[in-house]
Design a protein around this nucleic acid. Structure first.
Length: 256
DNA sequence: ATGGTTGCTTAGCAA
């Protein structure tokens, strides 16, 4: 089973690119983030023409997550459903290919010390609580998407310059740890030598051609999934050319 | 310290 995750940064702006990429990459499952459309505007019919079913959790203008799969997507669930703020569409989970798959869009966090930074830290704490409440570390679960956190020094091209930002500050790296400690492994980190492989490059200041990237898009899995993971990679080609997303897809291949 | 770019929506926010 080949699974991809991709922050598409507006599925309306990127629809033709996405369809062309699907025809070429042919993942079995694709988790999308930042679709930025209400559910009725998600291009489910065009995906269905290519053999993909969809479940969506979208909103206007901001956020929005989706999962598309070549097999049925069972028992979809939206948001934390923990009594807290669920107005931002950032979490969607469904079962497909015998695996519980979650598409995750962690809050960016804005400026260090801002309310958005605090919201991000709290959101990651809620993620750990949601795992405890709704999942088990001995069952097959994949949690993938845009975490807006680079976990390791080697996941950042210029760590000194990024440490004082909300993508690599110690506070957010620490806030990610409880979810990992619950029983999630970084599938990409286990398969690819550390350093020099990134998934996001800022649109500004020629970050992509300068190689100024961060690995903030993660594919995490419980032990039963990690045991089946054969390889992982980033499709850098998808970041090139005309009007790309600022993120590249991250992929993993699981043994059947 | 600011601004650099893109998308959505229409001047300004979010990323």
């Amino acid at each position: 089973m080949k699974l991809a995750c991709w922050n598409i940064n507006s599925i309306r702006a990127r629809k033709e690119r996405l369809l062309a990429w699907l025809d070429q990459a042919r993942p079995d499952v694709l988790c999308l983030q930042e679709t930025k459309v209400v559910d009725a505007e998600f291009p489910a019919a065009e995906l269905a023409e290519r053999g993909y079913q969809s479940v969506v959790h979208g909103q206007k203008t901001y956020n929005g997550v989706a999962i598309v799969s070549r097999q049925p997507l069972n028992d979809p669930r939206r948001g934390f459903d923990d009594g807290g703020d669920d107005s931002q569409c950032r979490l969607l989970v469904a079962e497909t290919f015998g695996v519980r798959v979650a598409s995750v869009y962690v809050p960016n966090g804005g400026e260090l010390g801002s309310d958005k930074h605090q919201y991000k830290l709290a959101w990651l704490a809620r993620l750990r609580a949601w795992l405890e409440r709704t999942a088990r570390p001995d069952q097959p679960l994949i949690l993938c998407g845009d975490f807006n956190v680079a976990p390791r020094e080697s996941d950042v091209a210029y760590p000194e310059q990024w440490r004082e930002t909300v993508l690599f500050h110690p506070s957010v790296r620490e806030a990610l740890q409880p979810a990992l400690a619950w029983g999630l492994r970084d599938l990409f980190a286990e398969k690819v030598p550390a350093g020099g492989v990134y998934s996001w490059w800022d649109y500004r200041q020629l970050a992509f051609p300068r190689g100024d990237g961060l690995r903030i898009d993660l594919v995490l899995g419980t032990a039963p999934v990690a045991a089946r993971c054969e390889k992982a990679w980033v499709d850098r080609e998808a970041r090139k050319g005309k009007q790309p997303s600022d993120h590249a897809p991250v992929l993993v291949e699981l043994r059947d």
